[in-house]
Design a protein around this nucleic acid. Structure first.
Lengths: 198, 198, 198, 198
DNA sequence: GATGAATGAGAGTTCATTCAT
DNA sequence: GATGAATGAACTCTCATTCAT
């Protein structure tokens, strides 16, 4: 069934072109014609593979999201102490997205657009953040049981963990030269995990 | 004699109405007519007080920004130990913005738009973050001199402080029910400041 | 009755200010506010003296037109040979309008606007041209009777006389440096009147 | 394969429709929607072929202008005595434009607008008139050499030639019934060329 | 399957005019 | 009488999407 393979490959190609196009001028300032030109195809062809402009961004984001989830899950499943897992998750997320600030910017476009669009958001950011908080909470519980962290940590500690990662992206998007992401990831882990320790 | 109006008061009124309108549907989905209706005036009247739609948002943001700077400066000038100042700044910023998630959402609209607009951004977000990092760095240096924090803190620690605050707003915008902002502020201070301590 | 005098004087003042304002940017690009500023009064005050923006231009034009008619009539009434009268009329019209190309430009604005406005034109340009042709025809008839011009002149000769004057203004409006109006008037008279002679 | 259209033909079609639309109400009173309706297409389609409303008028004018230049050049190149050439040029220009007074009106719209628009005019009317004066001057020089005209002609004679043609259009635009253009052209030639002769 | 010509809803902004003071 | 704040109709241009070929 070569057709199927082609379809999938072309869809992916268009998606990458769209992401490149969005990265240049932002989602809302990018015309479908820009995407088509970037992909080297006709404007109408995009609609053979994607229902709308929004679906392009949504799909791209979902891909990244899925990979993020996958990596996180892999770490969770690994045989490491819980605090070490938190550390690895923070490092892996920052590393994964730090390849291209332009793309991260596009995702923020999507993120803010999805809030205001009126329609039911196609991606449930509320749930994503809740998932990560929940996962953090579970890991913190395990860490507490092992005596690795102090008992008097505030209940919102998981939110603090999510905040420090998201806030890092925010600064980096505006000013990619402000800090080296690898070192920043290490700094986060250093400061915050120390703040958790007994 | 013509109608006498308090131009300043009316400008402020329109600004508040605009902010309310933007909060409902986001900046780009809000028409000038929506703003006018919200303010109970005619569309054209807005242009007697503001040059453009963008100026409405920019002015609103500048007001908030100025007040934030003012509060921060006040704390800096006060007679407190440096770590205490960091704590107070974090609390004051979160408290100030936590009054209305919708308005914070609008500011993120502005934030992301200013990145992609192409024009020279009217508000220099790069500088704002840099300022706050610089200020944090100065306070950390003082704290180190007084032996309040450990000597081996990573160089990007100021960025971590900024990150944790900004990331908090991000989560809160998406899901204002996720946590109580007051308690969240305390959690940040608890975890992070503990991470800094010797 | 000083009020009446004042009214008239102020009306005239506004009219001159309007003409100056129109001359700068053309009729349609001039806002009522520009006129008000030029006159040093409030926007609303203009409407105490003139019904509309168009009335300003119309009145200004009528003033010039009246003066032109007056001068022409004076020449017609004078004791001169008919060909001399034609000569004097051509010279007087060109001299009268050649004071300011900007104002002439405004009148062309008015002229073209009046064609397309849709409404019945407030100034009957058709009649003005017809009047001048008729007047020319009468003078030519007298000249023929006196044997000053040739008998085989074409029936449209009056139109040629009007054309040469109007076409002069057209060139001059676009490029006031192209020729000296005084010399141009003499050239017209020289060439055309020679063309009429027996 | 997508719809195949003759882009050039459609562009021309739209141009003609625009000219018809402008002729009805004048340039500034005609909406793009009017043009679209006249062309039997959608508003947006016009922008596939022309960048702006102004470009429509400009292009139309340029076409006429080019054809006028072409015809004039042809006459200049022909083997005729110089005075005959002047005669033929006057006749050809008047004949060419006398097909439709409405279109000529539109060109005057363009003409006057280009003076006041503020921007650098896209069509250099100053140069057009200067060109025609220069060309006339050259022909007159040749005629003088051949003894066909008198030696004491005024220096502004070329301007008189241009004036008589332009002034003819002016009268005709306002009142197409005032005279027959063909006869008017003959009258001009009769009166003016006689005025030049020795 | 691919294309790009066609579309028209939509929105920011201007400005002549009105009218309350 | 004088004013200028308020108004809203009007208009150009954009661009995501459709669909005939």
């Amino acid at each position: 069934m070569p057709k199927i393979v082609d379809k999938t490959a072309k869809r992916e190609e268009i998606l990458q072109a769209a992401l490149r196009a969005f990265a240049k001028k932002g989602f809302s300032h990018t015309k479908m014609e820009d995407v088509a030109r970037e992909a080297g195809i006709g404007k109408g062809t995009i609609y053979e593979y994607f229902r709308s402009k929004g679906e392009l961004l949504q799909t791209a984001y979902e891909n990244y999201l899925q990979e993020t989830y996958r990596q996180t899950y892999e770490i969770i499943q690994s045989a490491r102490p819980p605090l070490e897992k938190i550390r690895e998750i923070i490092l892996s997320i920052i590393r994964y997205y730090s390849r291209d600030p332009a793309i991260m910017r596009v995702f923020f476009d999507f993120w803010i657009e999805s809030i205001h669009s009126g329609r039911e958001p196609v991606i449930d950011f509320k749930k994503i953040y809740a998932d990560y908080r929940e996962m953090s909470r579970a890991l913190l519980r395990q860490a507490l049981e092992r005596g690795e962290i102090r008992a008097n940590l505030p209940g919102n500690t998981p939110s603090v963990l999510v905040a420090v990662v998201e806030g890092t992206f925010l600064q980096w998007i505006i000013d990619p030269e402000a800090f080296d992401m690898e070192k920043m990831a290490e700094a986060i882990v250093d400061v915050v995990l120390n703040g958790l320790r007994a």
